[in-house]
Computed example of a mutant assay.
Amino acid sequence: MFIALKVTHIVFVVAWMSCLFVLPRVILHWRKICYSSQESEAFKSLSIGLFRFGSLMAILAIFFGIWLWKAFSFNGAWLHYKMAFVFLLIIYHLISGKLLLNIIKNKPFRSNIALRLFNESSLLIVIPIIYFVVSKNA
């Protein structure tokens, strides 16, 4: 059961991360074509779908992560550090949703540079998580 639970958690985490990595990029491209209504609607649909899928994957990843944590009594400083960075990823996800909502409400877009920096910043949160998980027994 431990392996199946761990694999399930990892699958949902990977799915969530793929959405976190792609959604800001889609928003950036949406910004570039916002004056062409047909393409804009396609990017709007894609962005909303990505956010919804990513939200579901986040909920499932967190659920299975908590299940792993409680069922197998994981503990240690690495877990606390990892959870702090997971919390930052949740905030990042919510900010992505806020950006999306602002765009849907026709509020002004952020600048290209701000969106690019935001897009790349998720990796700065994910790398420490991977490090803490891999080095927990080292």
Rank of each mutant, 00 (worst) to 15 (best):
M1L: 11
I3D: 07
A4E: 06
V7Q: 02
H9I: 07
H9W: 08
I10T: 04
V14W: 04
L20V: 12
L20W: 03
F21D: 00
V22N: 00
R25P: 08
V26M: 01
V26Q: 01
L28C: 04
L28I: 08
H29G: 00
R31S: 05
K32C: 06
I33C: 03
Y35V: 03
Y35I: 02
S40Q: 05
S40H: 06
E41W: 11
E41I: 11
E41Y: 12
L46T: 15
S47G: 14
S47T: 14
I48D: 02
I48L: 10
F51C: 00
G54P: 14
G54V: 05
S55Y: 08
L56W: 11
L56I: 14
M57E: 01
I59D: 03
L60V: 13
F64T: 05
W67E: 04
W67T: 06
L68D: 08
W69I: 05
F72E: 02
N75W: 12
A77V: 08
A77N: 07
A77P: 12
L79I: 11
L79G: 09
L79N: 06
Y81W: 13
L88C: 15
L88N: 12
I91S: 13
I95H: 11
G97Q: 07
L99E: 08
L101N: 07
N102V: 08
I104H: 02
R110P: 13
S111K: 01
A114Q: 09
L115P: 13
F118N: 01
E120W: 14
S121Y: 15
S121T: 12
L123W: 13
V126P: 01
Y131M: 00
K136V: 08
A138P: 13
